[in-house]
Design a binder for these strands. Structure first.
Lengths: 129, 129
DNA sequence: TTTGAAAGTTAGCCTTGACTAAGTTTTGTA
DNA sequence: TACAAAACTTAGTCAAGGCTAACTTTCAAA
C-alpha cells in the first residue's frame, strides 16, 4: 500500500506541485475517507507529512522510497513491453507485478532491457513468430 | 488466496493422494486454524470439498483453476529464468508475480520462452553483457 | 483395547483496507 | 463578504486473513 501511495504522491507533486487527497482517491479508485486513513498510517511510518485539510507531501524518507518505486516501475513496464506486451496492458500489469520483484529479479530485468537496444518496442520483432 | 490454495492442493494430491490441512499450513507458512477458515471460504466458492477431520480435495471447478494456475506459474518461472534470474529467486518471485499476470501478458511470456530454444537457462547467454 | 499424541476445529481477537453517513473546514463565486 | 459547494475528516461498519487458546476427533502404539 505504502508504495502505491508514495509513488502516486511523487507523481502528483511533480505534475501539480501538490498531492490532494481527492486526487489520490480518484487515481487509486478508492473513496476519500480511505485515503485519509491510509495517509495517517504513512505519517506514522514517517513517509509523508500533512496538516489537516491541506495537501500531502513526502518526507525525505518517503521521497527516497518513491524514487526507488518509480525506477522499479519503469523497469518492469519496459521489460513487459520488450517482451511484446502492449504498453497499456504493461502499465496495468506492472502496477501489481512490481511489488513482487526482488532486487535480484530487478537487476535481471535491467540487464535485459539494456541489452535490447530498442527502448520502447523492445525485442518484439525478433520474438514474434 | 484461492489460487495459492488450489495450486498447492493439486500439488499435494498429485504427490500424496491427499491434501491435509497440516501440510497446507506448513507449506503456506500459516497456522492450522487459518487453513480451516480459508478452506471454508473455498468450499463456499465451490472450489474444494471436505468432510470434517478429513483431507481436502478439489472440485472439478477447483481442478480447472489449479491447472490454469500451475500452467501460468510454470510460464512465469520459465520467463524469469530465461531473463537471467536464478531458479530459486525465480520460483520465489513467481509466487507473487503470477497473480498479477493478465492473459495478454501470459501469452507474451509464452511466445518469449518458446522463441528461446533453451528451455531452462533461456536467453541468458545472449543477454549477458 | 485403551490412551495419549497428533490433527483438526471452534471461538475470540487483531490489523488492514475498504465502505457510508455525517460533521467540519476551506474556497470560489454571486 | 456571505454562503453554498467542494474538500477533508471522524465515526462506525464490514470482510479478509492472520493469530492464540481451548476443545474434539482420529489414530497408532503399548
Amino acid at each position: 500500500m505504502a508504495e502505491d501511495y508514495v509513488e502516486l504522491i511523487a507523481e502528483l507533486v511533480d505534475r501539480n506541485d501538490e498531492a490532494r487527497p481527492v486526487d489520490l482517491a480518484e487515481r487509486l479508485g478508492v473513496k476519500p475517507p480511505t485515503v485519509t486513513k491510509n495517509i495517517s498510517r504513512l505519517v506514522r511510518a514517517g513517509l509523508v507529512r500533512r496538516e489537516r485539510y491541506r495537501s500531502i507531501f513526502l518526507t525525505e524518507k518517503g521521497a527516497a522510497l518513491a524514487d526507488a518505486c518509480r525506477r522499479r516501475h519503469r523497469t518492469v513496464v519496459a521489460t513487459l513491453v520488450a517482451l511484446g506486451v502492449d504498453p497499456e496492458s504493461a502499465e496495468r500489469d506492472a502496477e501489481g507485478i512490481e511489488h513482487h520483484v526482488s532486487d535480484e529479479t530487478l537487476e535481471a530485468f535491467e540487464r535485459f532491457v539494456t541489452s535490447c537496444n530498442c527502448p520502447l518496442s523492445g525485442m518484439k520483432r525478433s520474438n514474434e513468430m
